[in-house]
């Protein structure tokens, strides 16, 4: 065995060891690597009271109520859902621009004894689809997609790999 091939085998062995060690570590720390928990996770395993955690999911259609808190700050009530389960959330403060019904959100806060999640921070989480307004409008008009109901349909159904039809762009 030449020195070169000995070095090659040694390196392959090291790579194998390092790779499996990393895989094991990542599997072991799975729970800590998760940035947020879904309503189903909460339903399955209730978090400890008074412990802050992140709750993520879609804003349920028709659940958003905007009010003004007694101290004059905007207050929002909505439900975060992942389809199977939902959690009611209250948040006092300014919501991000992308916040709307059907949008993904990640909220940080504590679960109250009444099952309401009191959020101190709301982040918007958008999906991986990007399209010009004309294409989104066309999808909405044709009834293929209602943004308030959830994510856009699979890209294969609308991404025809052709430029968008030329239409007068709406003022923003």
């Amino acid at each position: 065995m030449t020195r070169k091939s000995r070095r090659l085998w040694l390196l392959l062995l090291c790579a194998l060891g390092l790779g499996s060690a990393t895989a094991l570590t990542l599997t072991a720390f799975q729970d800590n690597l998760v940035f947020f928990r879904s309503p189903s996770d909460i339903a399955r395993e209730a978090p400890k009271p008074d412990r802050a955690f992140r709750l993520g999911g879609l804003v349920e259609t028709g659940s958003v109520m905007r009010e003004t808190a007694p101290d004059g700050k905007p207050e929002a009530r909505f439900r975060v859902t992942d389809g199977a389960h939902g959690v009611a959330v209250t948040y006092i403060g300014v919501l991000p621009d992308l916040f709307r019904e059907g949008q993904g959100v990640v909220t940080l806060g504590k679960l109250g004894p009444d099952g309401t999640f009191r959020a101190s921070e709301v982040l918007a989480r958008h999906d991986e689809t990007y399209m010009p307004p004309e294409v989104a409008d066309a999808l909405k008009r044709s009834g293929h997609w209602n943004p308030n109901q959830g994510a856009a349909p699979p890209a294969a159904t609308w991404n025809t790999l052709e430029p968008a039809p030329a239409q007068p762009r709406r003022g923003s």
């Binding site: 940035f35 958008h126 999906d127 294409v135 991404n159 968008a164």
Partner: peptide, 23 residues
């Protein structure tokens, strides 16, 4: 693999890209 705030990849080897061609 994990829940992240960052969205998944838009340009993937399999399946249509989540980006409209104009983008």
């Amino acid at each position: 693999w994990w829940n992240t705030l960052h969205q998944p990849a838009s340009v993937t080897r399999l399946g249509a890209p989540g980006l409209h061609v104009d983008i």
